[in-house]
Design a protein around this nucleic acid. Structure first.
Lengths: 134, 134
DNA sequence: TCAATAGTACATAAATCCCGAACTAATGAA
DNA sequence: TTCATTAGTTCGGGATTTATGTACTATTGA
């Protein structure tokens, strides 16, 4: 017997707020997840993201993160069999808040690139220091 | 005798993070304050914003809000006489994260306009209801 | 030096966040 | 059907953040 689950709540675009979007994306784990979902056009399940940051993220925490992204109107989550497929709602949101999502995702990329550059610089600096002290 | 205050902390543009910006602007009071500072090019003191939302905001709370905006790199605060002048750092930030601030401020305006439209609609609806029930 | 104004610092109550444990839903195998 | 497995959600309570009243500092003007 198949009992249909009550589907997840998704706000209509008109009820989406800038505050909720910014709050949802002000967490490093959530922007990373969202940037990933937006970047690749295929859908994603939750546990796929448990290693998105240095420390593995417990699944209860991941579930909360997805709920926040969903209720901010940023993603759509649909159960398909045993897992959840998450897709970006950026096309809808872009109509209401033009350029917002794009600018945030781009900014996130810039920051990532800068961070890697700094990390590389720090590493080679450390290497030079090590070399000198020999 | 004039004793110079230790000036307030302002992060350099390179240390500004997307997360801090989004977090700072994910609060309704803070976006409203920031949108105001960006919109008008003149500088502002803190207490000028105590009536920016429905409930008057205590000044200790306002001070915290300004600190968060400042430490996110969004505004520059400089003491001039007895009061503080706050100016937007959007030109600097725009170099690092192009379009980000603009998109957020625009989105905020869209939302404000939609809200007013809804409020007006609700008001006239209420008026019609009142008229009918007479 | 005193009063007034603008803002900050601190303490603590309220709200929010994180995450382990227990739970639900779907699938597949026996 | 029943059991095992996988994917997520919900709940509870400790940790962290946020809001704000009170007390403080800095500056100006009388």
């Amino acid at each position: 017997m198949v009992v249909y689950m009550r589907p997840l709540f998704h706000p209509s675009v008109q009820d989406v707020t800038v505050e909720a979007i910014l709050h949802a994306l002000s967490d490093p784990v959530r922007v990373a997840i969202y940037a990933d979902i937006v970047g690749q056009n295929c859908s994603h399940n939750c546990v796929a993201f448990s290693n998105i940051s240095e420390k593995p993220i417990p699944k209860s925490t991941l579930s909360q993160h997805f709920k926040i992204l969903r209720e901010a109107g940023l993603i759509r989550g649909e159960r398909q069999g045993v897992e959840m497929h998450n897709t970006s709602r950026c096309a809808e949101i872009d109509k209401r808040f033009p350029g917002l999502i794009g600018a945030i995702v781009t900014a996130h990329k810039v920051q990532l690139a800068d961070g890697e550059r700094q990390t590389r610089a720090a590493k080679s600096k450390a290497a030079r220091r090590t070399a000198r002290s020999k």
